[in-house]
Simulated assay, not measured.
Amino acid sequence: MAPLALPPLVVEFAGERYEVPADREFAIGRDADLVIDENRYLHRRFLVLSAENGMWWLTNAGDRIAATVTDGTGRVHARLAPGARLPVVFDRLHVLFGAGSTSYDLTLHSAGGFAVDPAPRAEVGGDATIGDVPLSPSQKLLLVALAENVLRQTESGRGEIPSSADAATRLGWTLTAFTRKLDTVCGKLEREGVTGLRGGRGKLATNRRMRLVEHAVATRIVTREDLALLDVTERAG
């Protein structure tokens, strides 16, 4: 039996679509085939797409930044660590990552994805299985405030993650109250196996907020519909 033809693969970013060639690697980063930003915190060649053994592969070619990859439903997702790679097995694959205080997301489109049942929600390739994490209304509101700029995007691209002070002001909270709730939310997710949320020496606060937003958006803990919660808060204020 003849091998199946490799399906076309397209990268969608900031309203533009880029077809990935099958005869060579296609790099994404600060100085690559697809330049997504001149952000100095972003690797020159961060993500690499390549064809091998009749399949498309996504590789993290960086040495500092990880990416979260999801099927779009939030039920199946993987943490792609530096040096790791995974096959593109869905018709649509969302990739989220952060560099500095900026969050990025892009989408991979392939007509030859495998039919994979996305249930139940799980995290593979690094973190433990993640279930639904119960959040109080104020904890959910905190996540929406941090993810607001990302959620308001109408297409893939970039969004700034606010500082804790700015997010607290957005909600009308004191910085102390915001930080306390942030610690609680991070603690809940850590106990469920989500990595990268612990502060401490060598861990920037920006990285923790970025990882929190990345996970919350990828797993659909917060969605664009939740932005209405901020509108209610504004009217109440």
Results as ranks from 00 to 15, higher is better:
73 T>N: 14
95 V>F: 07
77 H>R: 15
65 I>L: 15
80 L>C: 06
62 G>Q: 02
82 P>C: 12
59 T>V: 10
56 W>C: 07
65 I>T: 02
91 D>P: 00
90 F>M: 07
91 D>V: 01
51 A>R: 05
73 T>V: 09
93 L>W: 04
59 T>A: 14
73 T>H: 13
73 T>K: 13
92 R>H: 13
56 W>N: 06
76 V>S: 04
53 N>L: 07
79 R>L: 14
65 I>H: 02
68 T>S: 13
84 A>G: 08
53 N>P: 03
62 G>V: 04
69 V>H: 04
67 A>L: 08
72 G>W: 12
72 G>I: 09
61 A>S: 15
54 G>I: 11
73 T>R: 15
81 A>S: 06
67 A>K: 01
90 F>D: 01
83 G>P: 01
74 G>D: 13
78 A>D: 06
51 A>I: 03
77 H>Y: 11
98 G>C: 10
61 A>F: 04
81 A>T: 02
84 A>I: 00
75 R>D: 11
68 T>I: 13
78 A>K: 06
87 P>S: 12
94 H>T: 01
78 A>Q: 12
59 T>Y: 02
80 L>Y: 01
71 D>M: 09
52 E>I: 06
85 R>M: 08
78 A>L: 12
78 A>Y: 05
74 G>L: 11
73 T>C: 13
70 T>V: 11
77 H>N: 15
66 A>I: 05
58 L>C: 02
88 V>S: 03
95 V>I: 14
50 S>G: 09
70 T>S: 15
55 M>T: 05
64 R>N: 04
82 P>R: 07
71 D>E: 15
91 D>Q: 11
51 A>M: 05
96 L>R: 03
50 S>M: 10
90 F>G: 00
68 T>R: 15
54 G>R: 14
75 R>C: 13
85 R>A: 11
48 V>E: 03
94 H>K: 09
62 G>W: 04
57 W>E: 02
55 M>R: 14
82 P>M: 12
70 T>F: 08
62 G>C: 05
93 L>C: 06
63 D>P: 03
80 L>P: 01
87 P>I: 08
85 R>N: 11
62 G>Y: 03
78 A>T: 10
75 R>A: 12
58 L>I: 03
68 T>M: 14
96 L>C: 08
55 M>G: 07
49 L>T: 04
51 A>W: 01
91 D>Y: 07
61 A>L: 10
58 L>G: 01
56 W>H: 07
78 A>G: 08
52 E>L: 12
55 M>E: 13
91 D>F: 06
72 G>H: 15
65 I>F: 05
51 A>L: 08
50 S>I: 00
88 V>P: 04
94 H>V: 04
67 A>D: 00
59 T>D: 05
60 N>S: 09
80 L>E: 02
69 V>I: 15
59 T>C: 06
77 H>D: 13
74 G>N: 13
83 G>N: 12
68 T>Y: 07
57 W>P: 03
79 R>S: 07
78 A>P: 00
66 A>G: 12
76 V>D: 07
67 A>N: 03
